[in-house]
Design a protein around this nucleic acid. Structure first.
Lengths: 129, 129
DNA sequence: GAAAATGCTATAATAGACTATAGCACATGG
DNA sequence: CCATGTGCTATAGTCTATTATAGCATTTTC
């Protein structure tokens, strides 16, 4: 919209909508990215140790696991527990707060599953996915 | 994980989990991106014309609007109707299928809203968002 | 009939996400 | 006491998403 001097036109978007967009994007910020879902699922399955988590997610690198774990910790979705007696024994776990995400995750899984079929149905040569 | 010869270790991730990850990522693929939510909300609010939609979303460029509209059309979330009698009169609308996304969108908005507060509460200087 | 609006698309540049590679400090096992 | 494992992080490169800029063919408005 920097195009062609359209800057002066009035916006129709209401404040409420702008707020909603912002909230939805906050949520997506936490969930999107290539590895966040896999990490949540790995922890959900009971994996706790750094290397175990890494090994359970085919293709992930330490760099990304490290970054995403930190971001998710900042977002209170996981906790990192370091045992002071046995240094360098670290455990990661989902927080109770993370459970508030489960409905969304389940919705996403369900919707994604049927969407894949819908797209296959309509566009036999797979497009857009 | 290409790091340090860890390739030989067994994976704990089950087939079911891998499928679920794939489904969730399909869904996220459709929803994530900076402008898809705003576009859905603009159309939801009844905007139909290309330039109106553009004007209702502060910051979007024609390039992105164009690309995202096309992708969302491929994904059957919107339809593009061109009036043959009045060429270059085009309307975009959400499809009925797109309604299957509403629960997710609403969940995202709600979760994002409370998450913003949670993060504010715990980390006064805003982190991670 | 000139100016502005509509509905775009092409291209190049930039920013951000992700990957590849390397390495460090400590710990445990043989 | 040396190899291997654990828990990382730093750095540089690549690839993808997004932005910036320009422009075109048609249509409506004044």
């Amino acid at each position: 919209m920097v195009d062609e001097e359209n800057k002066e036109k009035p916006y129709i978007c209401t404040v409420k909508n702008q707020e909603e967009i912002k909230y939805a994007q906050d949520a997506l910020y936490v969930l999107s990215g290539k590895w966040r879902m896999p990490i949540i699922i790995a922890l959900y399955n009971g994996l706790r140790r750094y290397r175990d988590i890494a090994r359970s997610i085919p293709g992930i690198t330490f760099t990304m696991l490290s970054k995403d774990l930190q971001l998710m910790e900042l977002n209170k979705l996981i906790i990192r527990i370091e045992d002071p007696d046995f240094p360098k024994t670290v455990e990661y776990m989902l927080t109770d707060y993370c459970k508030s995400l489960y409905p969304i995750v389940e919705n996403l899984i369900d919707w994604g599953k049927q969407h894949r079929q819908v797209i296959r149905m309509v566009n036999p040569p797979e497009i857009g996915i």
